[in-house]
């Protein structure tokens, strides 16, 4: 079959935080091509430290209001009792003197319950989404805790998290929130909410999964579907590269680390900064290739998120928020 040919004002490659924020905001017809989830989906969902871009922060708070993943300014607590400040998911807001309860792992400062042993927390989150008996079982384990509020690991569902919390509060008589870990369902909730927001944008067409193979002369070329049997060519005025860091985007070739679609190399001394040991210890972390690139055939090429500035949700939010500035 002939390749699908699409035209638009803006083409975004990459559907993580930066790509989706840009997709929600950019004026004009926009096509977002996404080839799988990346660092956002396994992040803690915390934006911080606050301050560098108050406008983007306020925008995100407003955007996420009314989604299943509401954000507030405040504090959250991690599994190592670290208090993090920033934009945090409302369900992780740490306040008062709650009971801290871990599941199947002994953590200093936490009381421990045993629930669905052998399952990861991510799997538990999804089990609670589809299985009411699991919610009842979890409530049974928590019913002995006398408190105003309890903090569990992020296992309280993904798609049905609002309902699950309400159901649990009704049964238990106290609110259950979550402490912060990564990878966890927190990142997945953020991504799902952003995708739904982006889908409301009528100027936007989101195509997923699409694997982009090359960018040539004003065209983006790739293949659609998990079988990769349908070709797609997208022509756009502006191109936004939001392919992410080493988990999904960057490739390492000897002492060179580069963005595979553009060939742009990560600046700095790779050997000392980003040697193999560093990469294997920090699979999500990297430097970026900077925000601007020239590729023949496009009016403007901008790099967003981890590809531009390295690891971190805050940087991805900022670059996505400002993706359309001056266009």
């Amino acid at each position: 079959m002939r390749a699908l040919r699409l035209e638009c004002d803006n083409a975004i490659v990459g559907g993580g935080l930066a790509g989706l924020v840009a997709a929600v905001r950019l004026p004009g017809k926009t096509i977002l091509l996404s080839g799988g989830l990346g660092s956002t989906a396994v992040s803690s969902g915390v934006f911080g430290p606050l301050g560098p871009d108050a406008e983007a922060e306020a925008w995100l708070l407003k955007l996420m209001d009314g989604t299943g993943c509401r954000y507030v300014r405040g504090k959250c607590i991690t599994s190592s009792l670290l208090i993090k400040k920033g934009l945090v998911q409302a369900y992780t807001l740490y306040e008062g003197s709650p009971r801290l309860i871990s599941i199947n792992e002994e953590l200093t400062g936490f009381e421990n319950i045993k629930f669905r042993k052998g399952r990861s927390q991510q799997e538990m989150a999804r089990i609670l989404d589809v299985d009411d008996s699991a919610i009842e079982e979890l409530c049974g384990l928590l019913s002995g805790f006398k408190c105003d509020m309890a903090f569990l690991p992020p296992v309280l569902g993904i798609a049905r998290t609002d309902e699950i919390r309400k159901e649990m509060a009704d049964i238990l008589g106290f609110e259950v929130r979550e402490y912060v870990t990564a990878p966890s369902a927190l990142g997945s909730r953020l991504l799902d909410a952003l995708r739904k927001k982006a889908a409301e944008n009528e100027r936007l067409e989101m195509l997923d999964p699409v694997i982009i193979e090359r960018i040539v002369d004003g065209h983006i070329e790739g293949s659609m579907g998990t079988k990769g049997k349908r070709d797609i060519h997208v022509h756009s005025d502006n191109l936004f590269i939001a392919t992410g860091g080493p988990l999904t985007g960057f490739k390492v070739d000897g002492d060179r680390m580069f963005e595979p679609l553009t060939g742009a190399t990560v600046s700095g001394d790779i050997i000392s900064d980003l040697d193999n040991k560093f990469l294997s210890d920090h699979p999500l972390m990297s430097k970026g290739i900077g925000p601007e690139l020239f590729i023949h055939g496009f009016d403007r090429v901008r790099v967003l998120g981890a590809a531009a500035c390295g690891f971190g949700l805050y940087g991805a939010l900022m670059s996505g928020y400002h993706a359309g500035d001056g266009l």
Binding site: L37, A41, E123, R126, V130, I158, S188, L247
Partner: peptide, 19 residues
């Protein structure tokens, strides 16, 4: 596989692809 667990979160059914 980098054991990120994304497959466990997106699955609509009762299994862990990772496991």
């Amino acid at each position: 596989c980098v054991k990120c667990g994304i497959c466990e979160m997106v699955c609509p059914s009762f299994l862990s692809a990772l496991r």
